[in-house]
């Protein structure tokens, strides 16, 4: 199996109201995701992220196109797909009066787990997500962070090969969100599970995803690593250099990592792909050319720029 996900020519339109008003969401979408990666689907509200993830997770039927998950057709082999995938969403919701353990047992049974296997798997998940203290707490009494941990535990109880995370840190405080991100990274490293997540949060995508796809106008507008996409669009860290005297003769565009540059007599403005690794070399080159740097100001890449660039 070369791909975890293969979607070709995917279309989905919703109809709403009495007049069945058409709302096209996905239009001729193409997507290939390799196995074992963490892949982020990014896009503004209403871009169709949840629609796409729901089609891949067999919760929604596509109108047209080929969609394969783990080499299986989501229409004709949905049952086989379901045995090998699972899903957790942000703002987790489960039956209110079942406890942590009862919820895990219920979902474990839906995957055919029973007896000692089920008991061991439930204990494993409770321990993995540090839910021991809350094992007999009803779902409705848990905090948002604990609910999210339960959602991840539920999603892993079936040991899926492919895990869908729909805005997994949505509604969490920063500490709980960071904890969840660390769990996601650890899971991918330790088990090799392919993870497909949707998020609004570009920092989160940068921290977690090997690759991302920007969804807009019903299509994947660009796909690659965040850094590669930054380079492609010329978006990076902005560095402002002021010299004591006149700026030396220097072709900045030839320097490694420079995406854009602008200069006047005493000031040089560069956009570097990664300022932390490139800047020392730039300073060295200016020094060699006889320049004397007075001040340096670095503004980290505004990932929102990247987002805006693809969203509009």
């Amino acid at each position: 199996m070369d791909t975890a996900i293969r979607a070709e020519g995917l279309f989905k339109t919703f109809h709403s109201g009495w007049r069945r008003r058409r709302q096209p969401v996905l239009r001729d979408l193409h997507l290939l995701i390799p196995p074992g990666t963490i892949f982020g689907i990014l896009g503004p509200n209403g871009a169709g992220k949840t629609t796409l993830i729901s089609i891949l997770a067999t919760l929604l039927l596509p109108d047209a196109g080929v969609v394969e998950v783990l080499g299986l057709d989501v229409r004709r082999q949905a049952g086989k797909v379901r045995r090998r995938i699972n899903l957790a969403s942000g703002a987790a919701k489960f039956v209110w009066s079942l406890t942590v353990v009862e919820n895990l047992r219920f979902y474990g049974r839906l995957y055919g787990l029973w007896g000692r296997t089920l008991a061991a798997r439930v204990e494993e998940m409770v321990a993995l997500f540090e839910l021991q203290e809350y094992r007999h707490s009803p779902f409705e009494t848990l905090s948002s962070g604990l609910k999210q941990r339960l959602a991840l535990a539920k999603a892993l109880i079936s040991r899926p090969e492919l895990l869908f995370l729909d805005e997994p840190t949505n509604g969490l405080d920063p500490i709980a969100a960071q904890h969840t991100r660390e769990e996601i990274l650890r899971l991918n490293r330790q088990t090799g599970v392919t993870i497909i997540l949707t998020t609004h949060n570009l920092r989160e995508a940068e921290q977690l995803c090997h690759e991302v796809g920007f969804l807009g106008e019903g299509r994947i507008l660009a796909q690659g690593s965040i850094r590669a996409l930054q380079t492609q669009l010329g978006l990076g860290d902005r560095v402002l250099l002021a010299c004591a005297g006149p700026l030396p003769q220097l072709d900045c565009r030839q320097l490694p990592g420079v995406l854009r540059c602008r200069q006047n007599e005493t000031h040089l403005e560069l956009v570097l792909d990664h300022s932390d690794s490139r800047l020392p070399l730039v300073i060295q080159e200016i020094g060699k050319a006889g320049g004397q740097i007075k001040t340096i100001r670095v503004e980290a890449a505004d990932l929102e720029d990247l987002y805006r660039e693809f969203s509009h």
Binding site: S54, R82, N86, S89, K93, F94, V95, Y107, L110, G112
Partner: peptide, 14 residues
């Protein structure tokens, strides 16, 4: 599941 809004978790299972 409808009241708890957890319906999709049941139907994503086999």
């Amino acid at each position: 599941d409808v009241w708890a809004k957890s319906l999709k978790h049941g139907f994503i299972a086999p």
